[in-house]
């Protein structure tokens, strides 16, 4: 599969309060066709600037962005035909019913057989009973579903979801995520920005962490966690942790410590040591109740990478770059 979105060396600065703010600093990314790609970062990291450039409403100072081979600045109107946006922050147009508002967008995007298409997207997002209500009167969850319907009208190859579940109750957020999963099955490329790391982990095939206008890391959830994990840790729940630690410490590449009378923590440089550990545990008198690998969460990974700015010395004197956390 090729790349649906290509971003090369995009930079953008703004003037704000007499100062120049670097919103994006030589950002490069490639998002493959058919994948859900997460863009994660704190407020002001540059996510909105990046998606605004892709959507054609912000001009970059340098670099270029392409959506299915169409330049988002020079061929903005053509690129806008194949891209659509759902945003958790935008509103719905006043004084039009759901059906009328969708017809308005169908006209803007020259949707063929518009009435049929509107009926199908209304059904997809389960708004059949609200079709004649004024769109502005819908609940927050319904408004987000309406926005997804609006975005799907034009049958876009690329869909940008900008915090689609922000401010929604649990049930509405689950419904939105279910719809997104269905869209993935249809083969659409989705760029998702969110502060909800659970959502990102559940939905995204790959993701990038962005802060201060720079992409700090890119990869699958496992690849990103891998950067954080230098040593893997196993927690052993047993009747005599002292005996377990003594036995395991004899194995090369294993560092075992007593955490409590019944709990031993074992650091290994690779899970390939597991076979040796299991063999050693088979020979101890102590009862072994439970054995579990302690993996960092995406939240820990995110915080570690986001807070480890390139060039900033960490506790051990190494920079995030030297530690391999930042690309």
């Amino acid at each position: 599969m090729g790349d649906a979105i290509v971003i090369r060396g995009i930079s953008k600065t703004y003037r704000s309060g007499g100062e120049t703010v670097n919103a994006l600093d030589s950002v490069s990314l490639a998002i493959r066709e058919g994948e859900i790609f997460g863009l994660l970062g704190p407020n002001g990291a540059g996510k909105t600037s990046l998606i605004s450039i892709l959507a054609g409403i912000l001009a970059p100072d340098a670099g270029y962005a392409e959506v299915v081979g169409l330049n988002c600045s020079k061929e903005a109107k053509k690129a806008q035909e194949v891209l659509n946006v759902v945003s958790g922050f935008t509103g719905v147009i006043y004084s039009l019913s759901v059906e009328e508002a969708l017809m308005y967008y169908a006209l803007l995007y020259n949707v063929r057989d518009a009435k049929k298409k509107i009926a199908s997207v209304i059904k997809l997002v389960r708004l059949e009973n609200a079709r004649h209500l004024e769109a502005d009167d819908l609940s927050s969850g319904m408004k987000q579903r309406y926005q997804i319907a609006k975005a799907l009208l034009s049958d876009p190859c690329v869909l940008i979801l900008d915090e689609p579940t922000v401010g929604l109750d649990v049930e509405s957020a689950i419904t939105i995520r279910d719809i997104v999963k269905r869209l993935r099955k249809e083969g659409r490329t989705i760029l998702l920005t969110t502060h909800n790391l659970f959502e990102a982990e559940e939905l995204c095939d790959r993701m990038a962490f962005i802060n201060h206008g720079k992409i700090l890391a890119t990869g699958t959830v496992d690849e990103l966690k891998e950067r954080l994990v230098r040593k893997r840790t196993i927690e052993i729940n047993c009747s005599d942790s002292q005996e377990v630690v003594e036995r395991l410490s004899k194995i090369k590449g294993v560092n075992a410590t007593v955490k409590s009378g019944r709990l031993a923590l074992v650091s290994v440089d690779s899970y390939a040591r597991m076979k040796d550990i299991m063999a050693a545990l088979a020979g101890v008198k102590s009862e072994i109740y439970n054995l579990s690998a302690l993996e960092p969460t995406l939240e820990e990974t995110y915080l570690r990478i986001i807070n480890n700015k390139a060039g900033k010395r960490g506790a051990r004197g190494a920079t995030g770059k030297e530690e391999g956390l930042i690309e």
Binding site: G56, I57, K77, K78, Q80, F89, T90, I93, Y94
Partner: peptide, 17 residues
């Protein structure tokens, strides 16, 4: 009107010139 209803971005990201 689109600005007040916060839907202006949806208008301007559409292919309308």
């Amino acid at each position: 009107d689109e600005y007040w209803s916060k839907s202006l971005a949806h208008l301007l990201i559409s292919p309308i010139s």
